[in-house]
Design a binder for these strands. Sequence first.
DNA 1: CTGAAAGCGCTTACAG
DNA 2: CTGAAAGCGCTTACAG
Lengths: 335, 335
Amino acid sequence: MKRASIKDIARIAGVSVATVSYVLNKKEGQRISEETKKKIFEIAETINYVPNKIAKSLQNNKSKLLGLIVADISNDFYSSIARHLEDKALKLGYTLIIGSSDENPEKFAKLTELFSQQQVDGMIVAPVAGSEEVLQRLVDKSYPLVTIDRYLKGINLPGVILNNREIAENTTNFILEKDFDQIIYIGYDTKLPHLLDRQYGFEASVKESGKDIVTHNILVGLENISEEIQAKLKIVLGENPKNTALYFSSNKLAVAGLSYLQKTNIKVPEDVSVLAFDETEAYQLFPAEITYVKQPLEEMAHEAVQLLDMQISQYSKTAKKITLSGELIIKNSTK
Amino acid sequence: MKRASIKDIARIAGVSVATVSYVLNKKEGQRISEETKKKIFEIAETINYVPNKIAKSLQNNKSKLLGLIVADISNDFYSSIARHLEDKALKLGYTLIIGSSDENPEKFAKLTELFSQQQVDGMIVAPVAGSEEVLQRLVDKSYPLVTIDRYLKGINLPGVILNNREIAENTTNFILEKDFDQIIYIGYDTKLPHLLDRQYGFEASVKESGKDIVTHNILVGLENISEEIQAKLKIVLGENPKNTALYFSSNKLAVAGLSYLQKTNIKVPEDVSVLAFDETEAYQLFPAEITYVKQPLEEMAHEAVQLLDMQISQYSKTAKKITLSGELIIKNSTK
DNA sequence: CTGAAAGCGCTTACAG
DNA sequence: CTGAAAGCGCTTACAG
C-alpha cells in the first residue's frame, strides 16, 4: 500500500507542503493560523499519517540510528549491555541496529560497512582482534564511534572501559590474603587487551605478593570452552583438590568450570574457592553463592551513549576514554 | 565530514550521475564502455565512496531494515532468538532494529510507531497483552508483520508458533506415567495465550488421565518472580516433599524454582522431579541435569524471516501460520 | 554508449 | 500568515 505523505495532507487541506511541514514539526517563528493548524492535525490523524524518517534523514543527514556491534548478542553479558544501551539510546531519540561479529574481523568489517551504508549516526562497538584497520578508517573519516567492553592497542578510540588491570589486581590480592596452596587463573588464549589486562593484573599481584604459591594459567580458545576447561581442570585439580582457588576471567568460563565442579562433586568453598568476572543468573543454581566482579553495565551503557551523542552533536571530537570501576561482590564461594 | 556521493564520482570522472549509478549497480542492459567502468570503480575506491542507502530507500521504498520487538532483549530466550533472526535476516540483506517492550502495551505501541517511522520493511514481534489494537492497525495498513513465540486471541496474524498445547499435553503425560503423588504446575498469571495453552494442556492431560493425584498451580506475576516462587513453593512443598513433580512453564521460572530447591537442599530427582520449558545455560550448574522442552529456535527464526520476506515481496498476503514442534529432552531430573 | 530530467518525501531559506 | 522552489543522494524511463 502507498503510505500517506505530507503531500496528501497538503492537497486535502488545500495548503502547501511547506505549511504542513511547519505545522507538523511545531516550528515556531512561522506563524500559521490556529484554524489551519487544527485542520492539518485532523487530516494527519484521519489519513493515518506517519512521517517518513528516511526522507527526513536524507534531508538533514541524521538517521537517528545507532549501530551496535557485539561479539554475540545471545551472550548474557552483551544482551544485558544491549538492553541498557537500548534504553539510553531511546531516551535520546535513537534506535539501535544490532550485529554480532562472532570474533571474526571480516564479519566485523562487513557490519561496519553495512551500518555505514544504513547511515547510522554512530556506532558502539566491542572490537574484535584484527579490526584495528577498519576502525582506524572510520576514525579517519571522523565517523562517530565509541568502544565498549573492549579496547585495542595501537589505536586511540573513544570508549568506556572497565579498570580491568586494577580490579584484577585488587581481587587477586583478596584471594592471596586467604593463603591458598594453589591458585588457578582461567582465561582466554587471546590477544584482546582487556582480557590480557585481567591476566597480567592477576600475575602481577601474585608476583608482588612474594608468596610461595603454586599458580596455573588455563587459557582456552573460543571453541569448545566447556570441554577444554573441564579437561584442563581435571589435570590441574586432580582427584582430590584441597585449599585451591579458581579465578575465572569471565562468566562463560565460570559456568563451564562450575559445571565441572558440580559433576565431580568438588565442594565449594570447602575444597575449592571460586571467584569470577561478571554475573549471570546461572550462578543462582550453584550450591555456593559465587563471589564475582560486578561490572557497572548500566553506567557503561549510559556513558557510551552519552559519549557517542556528544560526538554526533560535534560537542566533542577527542578520543575521550571513560574508565569505570568493577566491584567485588563477596559471597560464600571464597572462604 | 561530508561523505562522498555519486555526484562527486561523476564530476571527477567527467560523466553523468546516471552513468555512475548504472556502473555501481552493475546494471546490465545499459552498455557502458569498460574504460568508463574501470575509471568509475577506481574513483569510488579512492574517494572512499559508501552508497547512501537512505537515498536509495527513499527512491525504491525499501529500507532493508527489519524491526524486532521482544519483551526484553536481555532475556536468554529472546537474545537467542534475536541472534538467529540476525543471521537469517543478514542472509537476505536485512539488518535488524531491536526494541524491548517490557510487556508494556504503550511501549510496544511506541516501538511499532518508531519502527514504522524508520520505514522498516517489516516487523517481527512478540506481542504483549493489550497490543491487539495496535497490531490490527498495522495489519489493516497491510504492514508486513509476523509474530514470534506469542500470539493473541481475536486477531489473525501471520506468525510462527510452538505447538504449546500439544507439547504441554505430551510432556504432562510423560510425567503422569511416573505416578507421582503430587504434580505442581508453575506458570505465569497471564492472559498471553501461548502460556495459557501450556497451562490448559497440562490441566487437560491431568484430568484426562483420571488419576487421583494432587495438583497445584502456582501462578506468578512478572515482578519478583524469584521471591514469589520461592514463597509459594515453600508452602506447597513443605518441609519434606516426596514423590513430587515440578512442571515449570519457562526457563526463568525454572531457574527461580531450582534455586529454591538448591537452597533448601531438596534432592532432584530423589524427592522432587523437575521438567521445564526452554533451555538455559544455567541448567549446567544444577546438580541434576534438567529435563526440558526444547524449542526449535533456529528454525523459528528461519521461518519468521522467510514469512516476513514473502510478505514484503508480495508473494504472500495471507495470515499464514507456521507451527513448529517442541521436543522433550529427557535428562535425569525426572526419575 | 551516455546524459538530462523527474521523482522518492521531506525541510527550510526566502519572498511576498 | 503562507507558498514556490531548491535540495538531500539516489534510480530509472526515456531520448539521442
